[in-house]
């Protein structure tokens, strides 16, 4: 007896699971601390929304959202190639903010703060998705594909190369591996799937505006990745369920609404700090953050 509300939460969990898994590729497997991951989410969402509003068929728009985001992933990797550690992290944060500022100010393209309302539900080769239930199935299928693809990538020899970049860049370089290319590719892969997640979000909520992609949400995705454990896909998925579902329980206790918002954020922060202090590997992680 699943109520429509649970379906709503389930869709959000699926989307955030994709975001976490894609971020994990960059952070967990390759060691690239990308605090601006939410920018890829936003770029994918806007790309998909703008294209479908201009009568581009949905399947094309979905691919485009991944590709656009991936291009920006390339850009970010190029910009930050020579940075490491907290400098890299802060540069990516800056990138995320600049993307937000463009979304807000480039009104001709994005309508700025007015946002894009009325984004249609997907129509795939004639099959029109209506209603949240079928959307959940659709999103879950996509998520499944994504997780499978990423699983194959990280468990292949290529995946081992990425992990080498994270663990021992100099060693890898000594063996003739092009670190720079690996980093760029990793970022592009990570961004691509985040862009797809963006498209899924936009077509579900049907209204996006820049505030949806503001920096503060990166903390949710990051918390999921860390709690789940770096370099653990299964961890990211389970953590996504925990992190998204738990604060929803707050809705059923009778606290004044003005308190729910801050309390959720505080819960995320506490979970994050506790995990960092007592179990930095997260639930399933195999490695520490450096």
């Amino acid at each position: 007896m699943l109520s429509a509300y649970l379906i709503h939460i389930a869709i959000i969990i699926v989307i955030y699971a994709i975001l976490a898994v894609s971020l994990n590729v960059a952070v967990g497997y390759t060691g690239l601390l990308n605090l601006g991951h939410i920018a890829f989410f936003g770029i994918g969402a806007y790309a998909s929304a703008i294209l479908t509003k201009n009568d581009v068929p949905y399947t094309l728009a979905l691919c485009a959202s991944g590709i656009m985001a991936s291009l920006f992933g390339w850009l970010l990797a190029k910009i930050t190639a020579k940075l490491k550690g907290d400098y890299l992290a802060l540069a990516t944060l800056g990138f995320g903010f600049v993307v937000y500022a463009v979304m807000l100010n480039w009104t001709k393209l994005t309508r700025g703060p007015l946002g894009i309302p009325g984004i249609q539900k997907p129509n795939i080769f004639g099959w029109q998705i209506t209603g949240a239930g079928s959307y959940l199935i659709f999103a879950s299928v996509i998520a499944l594909f994504i997780v499978l693809i990423i699983y194959r990538i990280v468990h292949s020899r290529y995946g081992k190369l990425l992990e080498a970049v994270r663990d021992d860049a100099i060693g890898a370089q000594a063996l003739g591996k092009n670190i720079y290319h690996l980093k760029v590719q990793s970022m592009m892969i990570s961004a691509f799937f985040a862009g797809i997640a963006g498209s899924l979000y936009a077509h579900y909520i049907s209204y996006i505006d820049p505030s949806t992609f503001f920096l503060s949400d990166i903390i949710i995705i990051f918390t999921i990745v860390i709690v789940g454990g770096l370099a653990s896909l299964r961890g990211s998925i389970i953590a996504a369920i925990i992190i998204i579902a738990l604060p929803e329980l707050l809705r059923f206790i009778d606290i004044p609404s003005s308190m729910i918002g801050p309390m959720r954020q505080m819960i995320y922060a506490v979970i994050l700090i506790l995990i960092l202090m007592f179990r930095p590997r997260g639930i399933f992680g195999r490695i520490d953050l450096d």
Binding site: L2, S3, L6, I9, I241, I242, L246, L249
Partner: peptide, 10 residues
């Protein structure tokens, strides 16, 4: 978490 949520929702 899922169980509580389903319980709460139901």
């Amino acid at each position: 978490a899922l169980f509580l949520l389903i319980g709460g929702g139901c």
